[in-house]
């Protein structure tokens, strides 16, 4: 009897505890949830509202103009150029980081000497600020009066007998192929000045991708590969049919992480080129900053910010929702 009593008392107490604990749990997460609700969703709503007013000048205006500001910015050649640049930057940055990251991960993973040293060197730029990266690479890619009186990396090429490698780098004004299309107020193609910026960004982030892939590679059980090898598979076949598919989730994470960094890129470009030459390396983040705070066109700046947000959301939201669904299934 006594025993039965304690047994029955126990679950009751547990249930009461559970209720209290649930309340505590909710109370613990509430401040964060509230902060995010205000600082993320509230502010986004506020910015969305600003983007539909005619706020110009230093005093706030609240008269509603609908989507006029969006029409205005999409019709300017400058914003169209920004979008082009952003696409080029993102594509090159993502592709290079993934390829180089994977390559380095595979090499570091191939039982080499001084593995730790190589790995550490490849990853260290990740610890730096984009501002530091920008300041240093701005120097490296300042072409000087080349080919005769070069500076930076051009000078290094000249001194090491590789003078033919000299280029205009960040001052290259070409857009390749630079097609003109009726109704589009920018030249379609790859702005060459963007390449050095991509190099600097890849320098900074590819080590991070390598680390991610390395983690993935180390997580693949050696037995599976060994079994395939016993069955007569070549190393390349093992890599293609076992390693790569198993790394897919990592690639997806990397794309999301790099993708959103890329779509938001600001610091690096401000320091390295400031958007020059012309607007050839300017991205929406810079444009927003300049028209908002320099030209006092707050409403148009807000519209640019909202466009950036939508682009990032288009990349990220499906991933987040997909992630959530698979989690629930698990």
């Amino acid at each position: 009897m006594r025993q039965a009593k304690t047994l029955s008392a126990h679950p009751a107490r547990r249930v009461r505890w559970m209720h209290r604990d649930r309340a505590i749990a909710l109370a613990m997460i509430a401040p964060s949830a509230l902060a995010i609700a205000v600082f993320v969703y509230g502010f986004i709503g506020w910015t969305a509202y600003i983007s539909m007013t005619d706020w110009r000048g230093l005093t706030m205006s609240t008269s509603f103009v609908g989507f006029d500001n969006y029409l205005t910015i999409f019709n300017t050649g400058r914003f169209q150029t920004n979008i082009r640049n952003l696409i080029v930057f993102t594509a090159f940055f993502l592709a290079s980081c993934l390829v180089i990251g994977l390559l380095l991960a595979v090499l570091v993973d191939s039982r080499i000497r001084a593995e730790g040293f190589f790995r550490s060197v490849y990853i260290f730029p990740m610890a730096l600020s984009f501002i530091v990266t920008g300041v240093v690479w701005q120097w490296l890619f300042a072409p000087g009066n080349w080919p005769n009186d070069p500076t930076g990396i051009n000078l290094l090429f000249k001194q090491s007998g590789l003078g033919f490698l000299q280029a205009a780098w960040t001052t290259d004004t070409n857009v390749v192929p630079g097609w003109r299309i009726e109704g589009v107020r920018t030249r379609i193609g790859i702005p060459m000045a963007m390449i050095p910026v991509v190099v600097a960004a890849v320098w900074q982030m590819s080590g991070f991708v390598m680390a991610m892939y390395l983690a993935g590679l180390r997580g693949i059980p050696e037995e599976i590969k060994e079994a395939a090898r016993v069955d007569g598979a070549t190393e390349w076949q093992v890599f293609r049919t076992i390693t790569l598919p198993m790394l897919q989730p990592i690639t997806l994470s990397a794309v999301i992480i790099l993708g959103h960094i890329s779509l938001k890129i600001f610091d690096l470009i401000v320091t390295m080129t400031g958007g020059a030459p012309g607007n050839n390396t300017e991205v929406p983040g810079l444009y927003m900053y300049e028209i908002t705070f320099k030209a006092n066109k707050f409403a148009e700046g807000a519209a640019v910010a909202m466009v950036m947000l939508v682009v990032v959301a288009l990349l990220v939201a499906p991933y987040l929702i997909y992630n959530r669904r698979t989690e629930v299934e698990r």
Binding site: F43, W46, K264, A305, L309
Partner: peptide, 8 residues
Amino acid sequence: PYQSVLVP
């Protein structure tokens, strides 16, 4: 993008 919350 933090630009989208800057002014508020």
